[in-house]
Design a protein around this nucleic acid. Structure first.
Length: 654
DNA sequence: AGCCCTTGCGCG
DNA sequence: AAAGCGCGCAAGGGCT
């Protein structure tokens, strides 16, 4: 019943079962298959040689507890060896050091796998459980930690592609291996690190943590496959949107006609002769000009400009909107990111402390909605666009087990149900109240709304307020499946305690800030009185962290659900069609005839599917959502309804 | 020239 | 009284 084939003493197993029956997530059973079935095989791939063809490497079959059951085996044709093992039923779980570097190479060789255990992602989850965020997670680092040796830094993500060989060599050297035999030696490190990870996972409550580990690795497979398959992106449709809004594509770095015109008009409106010499992209210039014109604005933010009754303000708003489209997702972006009718996002699985994915370089998760017009299915294909609406409030209902809120969350429109139950039918008020409760909002006159929530949904409100208090005290909270939030930095502790920071405070603070968990400790050196009052600073920092942990228990649990949704969906989709098209080689062949994931953004997936399989694919999306609900939350009246559309163009969904 | 920080806004 | 969470990216601007 466990998601992993772990060696656990019988009493511990019984205890885990009891916990699950009471409140924990049930075991991961995907389809009719138990997650722990099948063999594990550790694999390392030889470093790519210039001009080399094909993949070679090493394999080793492992027992349930990660112990080798046979000798390491050399695979001169690794892709063929992996493909052969993938024919087994049940399929193996591949154990490797890093999906994001190993799996694209297999995909490129035309091989897909069903399951894996990524030791780097697993190491990061386990380090997080130990309060050690930001420590290196590479195979070499994990192995060095096991042996008390100096731990090599992880390669910088940007450097991975260009200088990967250098960093890899440095890390290998620390682990006492020489580059020529590294794949064989790395196999030894890998099996050792993996076996130890299995034991660490088994020793980690709650039971859902093993599910989280499996889902994180499955997510990494999905991310690599999305990049390999690519999101269909029509440059002609993209050009049409840009041209309509900005004018024709300019030559070189010249600004588009529309932006140049707006800049001139803004300059004129602000009193510059012929509109020259004014840069609307400079907040400092805009601020100065508006103040000079008699408007005491604090910033040039859009919400503040909307209140400024000056002809330049409306023009500035228009300029900012178009300028952003041009700068962030204009022609330069298209040149850099769209190749062969596909946009390939570089996802960073687990790149956000909450477990959400991040992306690198392309801004894939911030693509303006209007640009979805460029996402058009291939001829004879369709897009399935599915969005888990109102995910976070539903997750709050499920994790808190508040029966009243769960009743509302059993409905298709949670906010409307909430409004009917407690807010005299005022849906907007119900929504503001719930969002305010989840984010820790106190301003904007929502105090009375929160009072209503506290009275009518005391269990849910106590859940988030407990999380906030834990954070304010410097404690750690967890997602439903057991992902840990970062502990406070020593900088935070010193501000909150009023004592000076300790020696290594700076480094710890930086790590935590990079993780996004740290409130801004030197917030706003403005002119408010009392801002240097230590008591006041302490309270600010404490409350800020309270808002973070308050939201973490919801956002991270929502990410748990979404990750499992994605993992289950990926597997279901792979079972739908005839699979690979042998006529095409490499990754292209893998996705040439079968429905596959092409985009994922927090609570929304896009599947590209042959039109004839669209209904079947859409059903898989819905079944996966239901299965994710069961795996992550167990028995609950809360529903996670999807808004699903079968469309030719992404923009036509909702 | 290149680094680092701030500002502002896109997405969920 | 303080004043809603999580991100990535581009441009400006100050600095070395």
């Amino acid at each position: 019943m466990r998601p992993h084939n772990l060696t656990i003493p019988a009493p511990a197993r019984r205890a885990a079962r009891l916990v699950r029956l009471r409140s924990g997530p049930p075991s991961a059973v995907v389809g009719a298959r138990r997650e722990d079935e099948g063999v594990r095989i550790a694999v390392t791939i030889d470093a790519a040689e210039p001009g080399g063809t094909g993949l070679s490497g090493w394999l080793q079959v492992l027992a349930d507890d990660g112990a080798p059951t046979g000798p390491p085996r050399r695979a001169a044709d690794l892709a063929a060896a992996v493909a052969e093992h993938e024919c087994a039923d049940p399929r193996p779980r591949w154990v490797w050091a890093a999906t994001d570097s190993d799996y694209p190479r297999l995909l490129c060789a035309g091989v897909r796998v069903e399951r894996c255990h990524d030791t780097a992602l697993t190491e990061a989850l386990l380090l997080g459980r130990a309060g050690r965020f930001g420590e290196p997670r590479s195979l070499e680092a994990a192995w060095a930690r096991l042996h008390g040796l100096p731990v090599p830094e992880d390669p910088k993500p940007a450097a991975r592609q260009e200088q990967g060989a250098l960093f890899g060599a440095a890390a290998a050297e620390i682990a006492g291996v020489d580059a020529a035999t590294s794949a064989q030696r790395r196999l030894e490190l890998l099996t050792e690190v993996h076996a130890r990870q299995l034991r660490r996972i088994a020793g980690t409550a709650p039971a859902g943590f093993a599910t989280l580990v499996a889902a994180e690795s499955a997510g990494a497979l999905a991310a690599a496959e999305i990049a390999a398959g690519g999101l269909p992106w029509r440059v002609d449709a993209h050009d049409a949107v840009l041209t309509q809004l900005l004018g024709p594509r300019p030559f070189g770095d010249a600004p588009p006609a529309k932006l140049a015109e707006l800049a001139t008009r803004i300059g004129s409106a602000l009193g510059h002769p012929h509109g020259r010499g004014f840069n609307p992209d400079s907040p400092a210039q805009v601020l100065r000009a508006l103040r000079h014109a008699g408007f005491p604005v604090q910033s040039t933010r859009a919400w503040e400009l909307r209140r400024v009754e000056h002809p330049a303000a409306a023009l500035l708003l228009e300029y900012k909107e178009l300028s952003r489209l041009h700068a962030a997702h204009g022609w330069a972006w298209q040149d850099a990111w769209v190749k062969g009718g596909r946009f390939r996002p570089e996802y960073v699985v687990g790149g956000v402390v909450s477990g959400r994915w991040a992306t690198r370089n392309s801004g894939a998760l911030q693509i303006p909605r209007i640009m979805r017009r460029a996402v058009i299915a291939d001829e004879g294909w369709s897009l399935i666009v599915a969005d888990a609406g109102q995910l976070e409030p539903r997750v709050l209902a499920a994790v808190s087990r508040d029966l009243g809120l769960a009743r509302a969350a059993a409905e298709g429109d949670l906010y409307a149900a909430l409004a009917a139950e407690a807010f005299d039918g005022d849906r907007a008020a119900a929504k503001r109240a719930l969002l305010g409760a989840m984010y820790g909002q106190t301003s904007g006159g929502i105090g009375s709304l929160l009072t209503v929530l506290r009275k009518r949904f005391p269990v849910a409100m106590a859940y988030v307020e407990d999380a906030a208090r834990t954070g304010e005290r410097g404690g750690v909270v967890h997602s439903r499946l057991g992902r840990a939030c970062p502990p406070p930095s020593s900088g935070w502790r010193s501000v909150v305690s009023g004592l000076p920071a300790d020696e290594d405070g700076a480094a710890a603070g930086q790590a935590a800030q990079a993780g996004g968990a740290e409130p801004d400790l030197d917030a706003d050196a403005g002119s408010e009185p009392g801002e240097h009052d230590p008591a006041r600073r302490s309270g600010q920092a404490a409350r800020s962290r309270g808002r973070f942990t308050r939201n973490f228990v919801i956002q991270a649990s929502a990410a748990d659900w979404a990750l499992v949704w994605l993992a289950v969906l990926r597997r279901r989709l792979s079972g739908i069609a005839g699979g690979a098209d042998r006529a095409q080689s490499g990754a292209a062949g893998l996705f040439a005839a079968a429905p596959h994931l092409v985009f994922f953004v927090h609570d929304e997936v896009v599947v590209h599917t042959p039109a004839a399989l669209a209904q079947e694919s859409a059903a898989a999306v819905a079944q996966a959502a239901e299965e994710a609900r069961r795996i992550v939350f167990g028995p609950t009246p809360v529903r996670f309804p999807l808004a699903t559309a079968i469309v030719d163009c992404y923009a036509d969904a909702k």
